[in-house]
Amino acid sequence: MGVTDFPAVHIACHECDLLVALPVLRPGQHAYCPRCNFLLTANRPDSQSKIFAYSIASLICLALANLFPFITLNARGMEQSVTLLGSVAILATEDHRLLAAVVFASIAVIPALLLCGLVYVSVAIRIGRELPGARTCLRWTIALAPWNMAEIFLIGILVSFIKIVSLADVELGLSFWAYALFTFGVVLVSLNFDRRELWDLLDAARAAGHSSHA
């Protein structure tokens, strides 16, 4: 039995291997595997525009989060203010470079790469042309997704905030709020992310590009 017998409407469940014939989903419908209940794919209204918009908005928020003080600490007349990059630099100077690198990668570098990748793929989809490397880009985006820890860092900030409150006055700076918005955007992007849909749209972009060249 050749591959042509299974056109694009079939999907093999990632978690139990059942071969499922996908119906056309109405907006808002989700397709779950009948055997193991895995979410196979979903038709989320305007998900592509949402991914594009939230990705750009989040990237702007991340850039803003680097400009202002993140947290300010007041203890016995001493004031200490750190920025996001500054705090990573402090960790690195205390001879814990590997720890600093791990933290910085998982809270800023990886989510930023993810969002940039999605913006690039979205542009390719929206202009209806296959941009160079768009496929590699989407593949890497999918591979990096589990390593993004922005929202966990936000919880970490809140926990440390509560821990320090008993020792000193702490103030959350402008950058903290920018980072919180960035995190919120990343979560919204991941809620609208569907790998099958993005690959289908990239395929459609390639087809459109070929027909316009011909």
Binding site: L73, Q80, S87, E94, I107, I152, G156, L167
Partner: peptide, 15 residues
């Protein structure tokens, strides 16, 4: 990873 981040933040902040 929460606890690792908490340690990182406390190190950066409480100096």
């Amino acid at each position: 990873m929460v606890d690792v981040f908490v340690v990182g933040i406390l190190v950066a902040l409480i100096r």
